[in-house]
Write a protein that binds this DNA or RNA. Structure first.
Lengths: 128, 128
DNA sequence: CCAATCGCTTGCAAAATGCAAGTGATATCG
DNA sequence: CGATATCACTTGCATTTTGCAAGCGATTGG
């Protein structure tokens, strides 16, 4: 298990608070959701239905990297650009994502789950 | 199951995104954590170690009420002030809280779980 | 070679957050 | 009873974060 690069500003020793310091906003978990679904390119992340602004996407990708949740490696598809993948640490957020998905499905009318975890895209290969 | 009062601005039909629209910030889940722990008064919520600003606390309590996650009722302790309790809907967020707690404990050094769900404080009595 | 696309960055307006200081109502104590 | 402290907020304002649109160099497809 690799510890985070930056401990960041921790508000308290509460594990919930510390987790929220890292992923507690409206966008981060959506990016992680998309990575689970198999997306790995900037363009695809930017085109999710929620339409994250590109500056925010870039900022979140940096934060996720420094938090050790994702890695960016040279894209084999396109020279000079990165391909983003969840690390083991990032993948371990799956229960958080699932519990939120389940809550939304049960309590928010009009929601529907149509994203599946893409196992092939989420095999470990390199860890930072 | 009582639907939310305000559907609020939904970014997409994704259950994760819709859940984040409601609880996706750094403070809301900490308030819910404290309510689970048995806190019910404004003062106690304001004094948690993370020190939420009082204007933000007031704003979040309103949002949680309009989202149907908590109810405010006349405090039997203090005239003119409210006592806040989780509704069944609010209590159903426990798995989200637990998965975040577990993730924090496993992946963020220096965190420790020292809050327990207070069953007595979280028995259903009145639903909005 | 040329146009379209990609992966960002930049600049700026708008909104959210954080801080400190009120305010009026209640409880507490002598 | 009266003074003081506390409670539950509200208000005003500085700072930070977000969102939007445009731009920009590199890359790709034709």
């Amino acid at each position: 298990m690799i510890p985070a690069r930056k401990p960041a500003a921790s508000r308290s020793p509460c594990p919930v608070a510390s987790t929220l310091d890292l992923i507690g906003d409206k966008w981060t978990l959506l990016i992680i959701r998309d990575l689970f679904a198999g997306k790995s390119r900037y363009r695809d992340l930017a085109r999710s239905p929620e339409r994250i602004a590109t500056n925010i996407l870039a900022a979140r990708l940096l934060r996720l990297q420094s938090g050790g949740l994702i890695i960016a490696r040279q894209s084999p598809q396109r020279a000079g650009s990165s391909e983003y993948r969840l690390t083991a640490r990032g993948r371990s957020l799956l229960p958080v994502l699932e519990s939120m998905r389940d809550w939304g499905l049960a309590h928010i009318p009009g929601t529907a789950a149509n994203i599946r975890v893409n196992a092939a895209a989420n095999r470990e290969s390199v860890t930072p």
